[in-house]
Structures are given as structure tokens and as C-alpha cells.
Nucleic acid binder design. Structure first.
Length: 880
RNA sequence: GCCGGAGUGGCGGAAUUGGUAGACGCAAGGGACUUAAAAUCCCUCGUCCGCGAGGUCGUGCCGGUUCGAGUCCGGCCUCCGGCACCA
């Protein structure tokens, strides 16, 4: 009965007196308890894990933080969720790896350097030290021996090594491309740093500047990444869908339109080859190679270039030239159009205004012909002449298309493509929205790109045995003139690795997404200090041989990844890409890094706004009035916690006031993990009360001695025993069923309610009572580990609760011996009856019909049918 | 515009396969203890009607399927998220 919990040592009277171990304070003081256990866990290094092929592993991973200075409530939630999973799996007998590290390169460190004159390294490492304290104060079960810090040379050396491998394979290459450029700061900005077309720091208008940049050829993996999406069974569908859309595969046809009177051809891309006969003009992007040649009015062309990509208006410029439609040899005008993207397809399109809404709008504006070539298949009678008000974009039946008329769109697409291919005028192609990944950043605080430029030899990779290329620390931060690396003569001037002549280093650094694309693999390799196990980087073994891949093979892939949805595309896609590349390098044997993904919701809170002073902190409001001006405060919407809206909560304050156990418990109880969580100060009080009640129960019985009485099992104690088994079952199932911690905690609260009202008297009562409390503490321990440990020890257990097995339940004991049977008449509840379980359907039916209330309800009406749902209800259907 | 997701008491949320709507918690109201307050404990708590027993309506709106719908189907409305001239 008590199979999983070893109760033997507690079943005898003299042991049970240990409940009275007089070490427990009456008052629950989370600070004392939590610091005590954090110290003990650290001293025993209990969270350290080693690869052990004899044990089943579980890799639990939370997205590592950027060391911005302090953790925020989003981290608290993320890491609380991860910690419950790690602790639960550990108790289930898995060899759990649960690592943590720092996404330590990035702009804020550099901005701090510019603004406050602190070196980015100092700033970063100080932040890491503080945040690490905060995480430990939360009682998170990390194996810190595996900690990685991406700004350390021992980490970014491998970024550089991967870069070189990719360069060898042609997966890293250089090309010219447009970037967001702030002329005032003289630097490149990421997309999210451009706010309403201006620099987020100095508000200068951002321009598009052409720069030579390094790219990773992620498009080589587009098809693989897309196809493998269907295998991501453990990911939220939403995220998989977002990835699919991002990759954006479309199949179509490329076809050449000759420029009339020249030898030039315009190659267009279309997914609608069936509408080829409806093309009435051709549009090319302003940056298309033929644009300059075809347009004589350079001023007009430049104007269009300025309007490129502006969504509000479609602007076109007639080139004065005509193209020949390869299908029917028709002469149609060529336009430069601002809405045609150079980056997608061929930078040129055929325009079919009758069947494409964008072309339709353009044709209307410039008064171009609209020719219908697709008729809806529904075959509704159509007016012979009618004014089109919008394009018909669906498939249908072809018309006005020579011999293809009357074919269905899908058939015609194939036939027309065949025709074009046969004539050598084009081919079927597949296009992706996914672009190659531009990784160059004109920034200091990142991984130096290991390339040297030589006037004679061109771009030369740094030899592997010279890695890492160290980021120099003695540089000046001015905030102007671009990367400080450009001014560092020591860094800049190097001999060419090939010809030993004068050469210069690349001064761009890598996008920080490179760092986070493989850190989960780094955790496996790292185990304290020492070699990371790739087996390269020393001169004796310049030819890299993958040594000792065992830890990766053992630990990877990640069994459960937890983080915010904001990374649904970029980080997760880059990581999938990197994993494939590393596999192709030959280091490991799998291509999907994350088996299961949990995207947790945001942490939100009510906002407060004063009509005069704007957003307010809660402490700036007294009795619904602004403390500064006395004006009534508007209680705004519940929104994601953000500093700008002042609806934030500092985890330090929270933990100082309530402790880590309460903070964790509430953030897990208030909502299921994938949903947004609305923070409620009163709700936290509720969780705190709950832990206090548990403390109170154990305290109350601390001095109780066993009073031997009868050994009869009282009804009372059998009820508590059942409730305990039911709770073990519910909590286990709720955790297993997509981590529904909120309902698991609700079940624990119910059990505590029952334990509170239970007063043990008999021998058996005490046995059950103890069993219930032990079960409660074990079930509570993943959520609120410190108090669970403390009370576990108090009731006389020597070993840490961390080393206990998760309790199991006895299905027979969970079963109720009486059920409340609902009796409905025509689907409406009329009575509820207590009945013993195990009655036959016929007996149940009889009892239901005999019930006076039911007799009353049915009256003399004919009983048409009776439905019996086992253990639930009876529905009696009567006539009118 | 397109693609997702969600709408349940005063609030956060439960309801696992179509079978008692509102578990658990918060807030609120009442009571006990206390000189008093806090803390704690007990009771009430979807709506409307009724002194009561009891009944009525009720899961965004309209309709459908079913003995029975928060759950399934069709059509809307609102909110949130993602993508957004990708030819």
C-alpha cells in the first residue's frame, strides 16, 4: 500500500515521536529556511550531473538570459516552470541535465560603455555575478559546473571554428547587401532597433546603406527545415506554423520576356502560369539590373528607388520599352514599380491585373488593360460585359488563352510550364521567403569574424590553430565612427596567413544569434573547466578530429525546452539550422535540437495612468489618486510588464517579502504555463497563506506522542487515505498532461484542506496522517522545494527530499465506494442520489425511477427511453 | 488583408473522451476569537423569482446536430498574437 514511500522506519511508536523534533519555529520564516537549504544543496553540489549510459537521461533546458543587470518576472516564471520539470523528472528516476548560462554578447553592454564609460566586459561580468545570485536565491536546481558565458573566448572560439567550417563548405560567404544605417551613430542597426524609420538612440532618420556583409547559407537547408517541421510533434502547432510561413515555400515558373528591339530578356517568376495569357504589362524592381538601361530619366528612376518598399502607395514608371509575352508574342509595356521586391524571385513579374489584386490596383492607377483569362468554376452565369471591381484570384477555368482555354487552372499551370520549358524560355522553380542569414554586425561586443583581408590573396580564413581571435579589451568607446575595432591598430594589422604580406583583420563581429544557436550543445561538452571535447584547437592536431562525442550523443537532443514565444522563429530556426550544420560537420548524429517545446505566456499586470504624469508605479497611487497631483488615476488594461509602463515588479522585492517558494508557487498556480499570467498581489498572499498552513500543520503536531488506541481503521482516516492517493494521481497526471501545474497545485490545496480538518486518534489514523503529510511534501517539493525540505527533515527524515522517489498511488484506494448519481429528466438535473458503486445499469435505472422527486417530475407521462452513464448520471426521456 | 489562438461568476481560472458548469484560489459580505487591530478559524457567495421548499435563466451572439453541447457543426461579433505588397 505504501510501496513507493519507505514508511517502515516511521511506523513504530518511538520513531513517530520524531515528529516532535523540537527544531521547528512556530512562525514560517522563508528567508531562514530558504538560505539554509540553498547552502546545503550547494555544499553537496546536488544538482551536478554526469553522463551515465546506464541511466535514462532527461535534458531540461530554459532559454538562457541576456545579462542585462537583474532578472525580471518573465525569467522568474520561465525558470520556475523549468525547475519544476527538472525536479519532477529527477524524482521520477531520470538522470536530469539542467544547465544555465549567459547570452552575454550584445548591444546593451556596448551602450553602457558609451554612456557610462564602463567596459562592456566589466559591465557584463558584474551583471552575471548579480543575476547568478538571484537565480540561486530562487532555489533553481542548476548544474553550475556546466555554465557557459558566450562572451568568454573559450566559448566564442567555437563560434569562430563553426564559421571556418561553414566557410570551407561554402555555407559562409560574403556579399553586398542593404542594411539599416544610422548616419549619426555611424553604425548598423538591427530591424528592431529602428523605430518609425528612425534610430532608437538618437532619433536620426535611418537610411539603407549597401555594405559587404557575411552570410550563412541557411537557404541551403530551407527544404529540409520545412519538411522536418512536420516531425516536430512536441512543439506548439502555432510555432511550427510560424516557422513554415517564415520559410515560405512556393512553387512556380520562371519565364523569359524578351525586351522588344533588343537582345535583353526579363526573367519573371510566377506561381500562376495559368494566367500567362492575361499578362498585360511587366514590372521590374527599381534595383533590377535592366532598370538603369531601360530608363533614360534617371531622376524619375531615383524617385522610384526612394519609394521602394513603401506600402502605402504603388508607384510605377513607364520605361518606354515593351516586352514580348512568350505565350502569344504580344507586345506589352515594361514598368519600373516600387512594389516589386528585388530580394524575392527574379525581381521582375508579369502583371495580370484581372487575377492579382496588386496588379489590378496598379492597372487602374495607370490605366492599363485588364484581361480576364480565368472564369470561376462555379459556372454562374456572368454578365457579358461587366466592370471588374477587384481581381479574381482563385483557380478556375481558362478563357482567352488559345489552345489552353477551357482547361482547369491546375492542369493549365502544368501544361503552360511544360510549353515554356520545351521552348527553352524558362523552367519550373521553387522559391522561399527565407533569406540567407546576414551575420555581420559593425559592433565591438561580439565574436570577431575570423577572416583576414590581404591585398594579394583576398579574404583569407584565420587558421584553426590560431583560434580564438581574441576581442581586444583596450579600445575606446566614443559612440561615433562605428566599431572601436576599426581604431585598434594591434587588432587590425596582421600578416596574411597565406603570403605573410601586410593584411587587415575583419572588424565586423557576429550576430549574437550565432551564440545562442548551439549553446545547448555547449552545456553537454562543458563539465567544470577543461577541454570541450571537440578535440581541436591545438597545434599537434591541427586537423580537427571529433573526439569524444559521447556526451553530446548521450544528452542531446533537448527533451524539454522552455522559453518565450518571441523566439518562435529566429532563435529556434537558427538553432535548427546550426544543429544540421554541426551534424554535417560530423560531430553528432541528429538534426533536431529540441524534442519538446513549451512557450510560456507573458507576465502581465494592471497599468496605472495619471492624466498629467502619465504611467505610474503602484506606490505613486494612493486611494486611486496620483500622489503628485491628486488627480484621479485611470486603471488601464492588463499588459505585459514593462519598465516604460511602470507595471513591473522587482523579483528581489518579491523574494525578500515572501520568499522564493511563494513566488514560484504563485507564478505556477495563477495560470497554466502556456497562457499569459496576470500578476495579483493578493494572489501571492493566497499562496503564502497556503504554505503557512502546511507549516502550521507540521508545527501543531511536532510534540504529539503516539497514543495507542484501537487499531481499527476509522472511516475518517480511510477518507484521508483515499484523498491522498487521489491527490498523488491527480498531481502526477496534471504534470504529465502538458504541465498543468495550476490544477496540480489546486489538488494539493484540497489535500491540505482535508489534512487540516483531520485529527488523528488511533494508531491507524497516525499512520495515514503521516503518509498524507509525507506525500504532500513530496508532491510539493518540485514547486516549493525549500519548505518541503525543511518540513521533510522536521518529521524525521535524514535524506534530502531531492533524493526521494516520486510517490505512486494505488488505483483501488482512489476509488470512491459511493458515488453521487445525477438523475436528469429530459436533460435537466432533477435529483442527486448517493449510491454504492458497482450496481448494474438496470439497478441504477430502477433506483432512479423510484426516486420520489423523479416520480413527481415524470408524472404520468410515458417514459420513452432511459440513458445510464456508468458512475455519472441517468437521463430519463419522457414524452410531452 | 491573410494565418493562428481566445472569449466561462466581481477577478485569476477548473471542467482530461459530448454526461452534475463554476474545482482551487482571490476579492466581497457575515460570524467567532480579541480591550482593539492584525493574524487565524467558521459560514455565505453566477442570475432572477420566492419567506421557504423550490423553480427560472446562464459558458461572446444567432442557428443546427444530439436523450444530453462550455465541449461537435454552420454563420457572425469582439479581443490578443504572428505575417504582411513574397508575384
Amino acid at each position: 500500500m505504501f510501496s513507493e514511500i519507505n514508511l517502515d522506519s516511521h511506523l513504530h511508536g518511538n520513531d513517530r515521536t520524531k515528529i516532535g523534533a523540537d527544531i521547528l519555529d512556530e512562525r514560517y520564516d522563508p528567508q531562514t529556511v530558504e538560505l539554509k537549504w540553498q547552502k546545503r544543496w550547494a555544499e553537496r553540489n546536488l544538482f551536478r550531473t554526469e553522463a551515465d549510459p546506464a541511466k535514462k537521461k532527461f535534458y531540461c533546458l530554459e532559454m538562457f538570459p541576456y545579462p542585462s543587470g537583474k532578472i525580471h518576472m518573465g525569467h522568474v516564471r520561465n525558470y520556475a516552470i523549468g525547475d519544476v520539470i527538472a525536479r519532477y523528472k529527477r524524482m521520477r528516476g531520470f538522470n536530469v541535465i539542467h544547465p544555465m548560462g549567459w547570452d552575454a554578447f550584445g548591444m546593451p553592454a556596448e551602450n553602457a560603455a558609451i554612456k557610462e564609460g564602463i567596459h562592456p566586459a566589466k559591465w557584463t561580468y558584474e551583471n552575471i555575478a548579480y543575476m547568478k545570485k538571484q537565480l540561486n536565491r530562487m532555489g533553481l536546481s542548476y548544474d553550475w559546473d556546466r555554465e557557459v558565458t558566450t562572451c568568454s573566448p573559450e566559448y566564442y572560439k567555437w563560434n569562430q571554428w563553426f564559421f571556418l567550417k561553414m566557410y570551407e563548405k561554402g555555407l559562409a560567404y560574403r556579399k553586398s547587401s542593404f542594411v539599416n544605417w544610422c548616419p549619426s551613430c555611424a553604425t548598423v542597426l538591427a530591424n528592431e532597433q529602428v523605430i518609425d524609420g528612425a534610430c532608437w538612440r538618437c532619433d536620426t532618420a535611418v537610411i539603407q546603406k549597401q555594405l559587404e556583409q557575411w552570410f550563412f547559407r541557411i537557404t541551403n537547408y530551407a527544404e529540409d527545415l520545412l519538411r522536418a517541421c512536420d516531425g516536430l510533434k512536441g512543439w506548439p502547432e502555432k510555432v511550427v506554423l510560424m516557422q513554415k510561413h517564415w520559410i515560405g515555400k512556393s512553387e512556380g515558373l520562371e519565364a523569359d520576356f524578351r525586351v522588344d528591339g533588343t537582345n535583353d530578356k526579363i526573367r519573371i517568376f510566377t506561381t500562376r502560369a495559368d494566367t500567362l495569357f492575361g499578362a498585360t504589362f511587366v514590372c521590374i524592381a527599381p534595383a533590377h539590373e535592366l532598370a538603369e538601361k531601360l530608363v533614360s530619366d534617371k531622376k524619375a528612376l531615383n524617385k522610384i528607388k526612394e519609394q521602394y518598399g513603401k506600402e502605402d502607395e504603388k508607384i510605377g514608371l513607364f520605361t518606354g520599352h515593351y516586352a514580348i509575352n512568350p505565350a502569344n508574342d504580344e507586345k506589352i509595356p515594361i514598368y519600373i514599380a516600387n512594389f516589386v521586391l528585388m530580394e524575392y524571385g527574379t525581381g521582375a513579374i508579369m502583371s495580370v491585373p484581372a487575377h492579382d489584386q496588386r496588379d489590378f490596383e496598379f492597372a487602374k492607377k495607370y490605366d492599363l488593360p485588364i484581361r480576364e483569362v480565368i472564369i470561376p468554376a462555379s459556372n454562374e452565369p456572368r454578365a457579358t460585359s461587366h466592370e471588374l471591381t477587384e481581381a479574381f484570384e482563385e483557380d478556375g477555368i481558362l478563357a482567352n488563352s488559345s489552345s489552353y482555354s477551357r482547361l482547369r487552372s491546375d492542369v493549365a499551370r502544368a501544361e503552360i510550364a511544360k510549353f515554356i520549358e520545351k521552348k527553352g524560355l524558362g523552367k519550373k522553380v521553387v522559391n522561399y521567403k527565407l533569406r540567407d542569414w546576414g551575420i555581420s554586425r559593425q559592433r565591438y561586443w561580439g565574436t570577431p569574424i575570423p577572416i583576414i583581408y590581404c591585398a594579394k590573396c583576398g579574404a583569407v580564413p584565420v587558421p584553426e590553430n590560431e583560434l580564438p581571435v581574441i576581442l581586444p579589451e583596450d579600445v575606446k568607446f566614443t559612440g561615433t565612427g562605428g566599431s572601436p575595432l576599426k581604431e585598434s591598430e594591434k587588432f587590425l594589422n596582421v600578416p596574411c596567413p597565406k603570403c605573410k604580406g601586410k593584411a587587415r583583420r575583419e572588424t565586423d563581429t557576429m550576430d549574437t544569434f550565432v551564440d545562442s544557436s548551439w549553446y545547448f550543445i555547449a552545456y553537454c561538452l562543458k563539465n567544470g573547466t577543461g577541454d570541450w571535447g571537440f578535440g581541436i584547437g591545438n597545434k599537434k592536431n591541427a586537423n580537427p578530429q571529433p573526439l569524444n562525442p559521447k556526451p553530446i550523443d548521450y544528452w542531446m537532443p533537448v527533451d524539454q525546452y522552455i522559453g518565450g514565444v518571441e523566439h518562435a522563429v529566429l532563435h529556434l530556426l537558427y538553432s535548427r539550422f546550426f544543429t544540421r550544420v554541426i551534424k554535417d560537420i560530423g560531430i553528432m548524429g541528429f538534426d533536431e535540437p529540441f524534442t519538446n517545446l513549451l512557450t510560456q505566456g507573458m507576465v502581465c499586470k494592471e497599468t496605472l495612468k495619471c492624466p498629467e504624469h502619465g504611467w505610474l508605479f503602484p506606490e505613486e497611487v494612493k486611494e486611486d489618486k496620483c500622489t503628485r497631483c491628486g488627480k484621479p488615476v485611470e486603471r488601464g488594461r492588463v499588459e505585459k510588464m514593462s519598465k516604460s509602463k511602470k507595471n513591473v515588479l522587482d523579483p528581489d522585492h518579491l523574494i525578500n517579502r515572501y520568499g522564493a517558494d511563494t513566488s514560484r508557487l504563485f507564478s505556477l498556480f495563477a495560470a497554466p504555463p502556456e497562457r499569459d499570467l496576470e500578476w495579483s498581489d493578493q494572489g501571492v498572499d493566497g499562496s503564502y497563506r497556503f504554505l503557512n498552513r502546511i507549516w502550521g500543520i507540521v508545527y501543531k503536531y511536532r510534540c504529539q506522542k503516539l497514543k495507542p488506541n484501537s487499531s481499527l481503521v476509522t472511516r475518517h482516516s480511510s477518507l484521508l487515505l483515499r484523498k491522498t492517493h487521489q491527490t498523488i494521481k491527480r498531481v502526477t497526471n496534471d504534470i504529465e498532461r502538458e504541465y498543468h501545474f495550476n490544477t496540480a497545485i489546486a489538488a494539493l490545496m484540497e489535500l491540505v484542506n482535508d489534512i487540516t480538518s483531520f485529527e488523528p486518534k488511533t494508531d491507524e489514523d497516525w499512520k495515514v496522517f503521516r503518509f498524507s503529510i509525507e506525500a504532500l511534501l513530496l508532491l510539493l517539493s518540485p514547486f516549493s522545494p525549500h519548505i518541503a525540505e525543511e518540513l521533510w527533515e522536521t518529521i524525521g527524515n535524514k535524506a534530502s527530499i531531492l533524493e526521494q522517489r516520486w510517490p505512486s498511488w494505488d488505483e483501488d484506494i482512489t476509488k470512491e465506494d459511493e458515488i453521487e448519481l445525477v438523475i436528469q429528466v429530459n436533460g435537466k438535473v432533477k435529483a442527486k442520489l448517493l449510491m454504492p458503486t458497482g450496481l448494474s445499469d438496470e439497478d441504477i435505472k430502477q433506483k432512479a425511477l423510484e426516486e420520489p422527486k423523479i416520480k413527481e417530475a415524470t408524472g404520468h407521462k410515458a417514459i420513452k427511453k432511459v440513458f445510464v452513464v456508468k458512475g455519472k448520471l441517468v437521463n430519463i426521456v419522457i414524452g410531452d
